[in-house]
């Protein structure tokens, strides 16, 4: 086996893991806190990429500054879109049960796909390559594209940030508390509706960050939301639903193995992910880091 190729594929896999983590951490966070499985979470990722295109390509002409502006503006904007979805539509399904939630959020996927085609067209759109101005990072005999290195670092930084947020800050603890027993937390003086909007904002922001990060790597296309959501589900099932650490472990496994499969045994690209998922479900149905749920109220 060619060690150079192996190393390159692991590196590419880590980049994909990082994107997967950004998206699936948002998905698992919203599920963990609110018990809502937002199928349209991938559409917010897509929206992140297209908003990024709009800023980087159409508004600011592909300069390094354009990227900086896009990375600062896009994630919170997508977060706001997610929060608005929760307020206006998804909230109405809480008294109705999960099947309505799934139907609604599946419908939203179709709406977002068509919306993107209407606004940006159906053709694939390329970002200018950020590595053209970022350059590379010398690593032994290899030169690693700096943008890719930054994305890997970003994934780990977001992981540490989320971990700190949920274990150290008061707002983070309130979010966890609301996940454990929303009624008691309400009776303790917390406006749980606001907690829910905030968690949708944060989860969607992460998806938007994933989208703007992935855009320059894989181009933007109307189907990209569905691609990522399928892998993200596998990630959070493998890692354990509701667990940020699980999302990280799942992303590393799925990202790296998928990347290795692509270069060494392309037929397995999709299969391998779901074989692992099935194996984890058989051995530990709650996922690697999942715990049997506390009784929800």
């Amino acid at each position: 086996m060619d060690m150079g190729l192996l190393a390159a594929q692991v590196f590419n896999g880590l980049v994909y893991s990082s994107i997967l983590f950004l998206v699936s951490s948002g998905l698992t966070l919203i599920y963990g806190i609110m018990n809502v499985l937002n199928l349209a979470h991938g559409s917010l990722y897509m929206l992140g990429a297209y908003l990024g295109i709009t800023i980087v390509v159409y508004a600011l002409g592909g300069t390094p500054l354009a990227y900086l502006v896009a990375f600062l503006l896009v994630p919170p904007s997508v977060g706001v879109v997610g929060a608005l979805l929760e307020r206006t539509l998804i909230r109405r399904t809480y008294p109705m049960g999960e099947e309505y939630q799934l139907l609604l959020t599946f419908g939203l996927i179709l709406v977002f796909d068509d919306l993107v085609k209407m606004v940006w067209g159906a053709a694939y759109i390329n970002f200018p390559d950020p590595n053209s101005f970022l350059g590379g990072l010398r690593f032994g005999v290899y030169t690693l594209p700096l943008y890719h290195v930054i994305l890997i670092a970003l994934g780990f930084a977001v992981f540490l940030g989320l971990w700190t947020f949920f274990s150290r800050t008061f707002t983070g603890k309130v979010m966890r508390a609301a996940a454990m027993d929303r009624e008691i937390v309400e009776a303790m003086g917390v406006d749980v509706n606001r907690v829910f909007v905030s968690s949708f904002f944060l989860g969607s922001l992460l998806s938007g960050l994933g989208g703007i990060s992935a855009g320059p790597l894989y181009t933007a296309s109307p189907g990209m939301g569905t691609d990522i959501i399928v892998y993200s589900f596998a990630v959070i099932v493998i890692g354990g639903m509701g667990s940020i650490g699980g999302a990280m472990a799942g992303s590393l496994i799925v990202g790296v193995l998928r990347s290795l499969a692509i270069s060494f045994y392309p037929q397995l690209e999709i299969v391998i992910v779901f074989v692992i998922m099935a194996a984890v479900l058989l051995v530990k149905p709650t996922g690697l880091f999942g715990r049997p749920e506390f009784e929800r109220r």
């Binding site: 454990m180 303790m188 003086g189």
Partner: peptide
Amino acid sequence: AHERARMGIGYVPEGRRVLPDL
């Protein structure tokens, strides 16, 4: 409920319902 809590109603629920992971 959350406003009542802030107005000055304290609640000790049936079955205690301590938040387990905190």
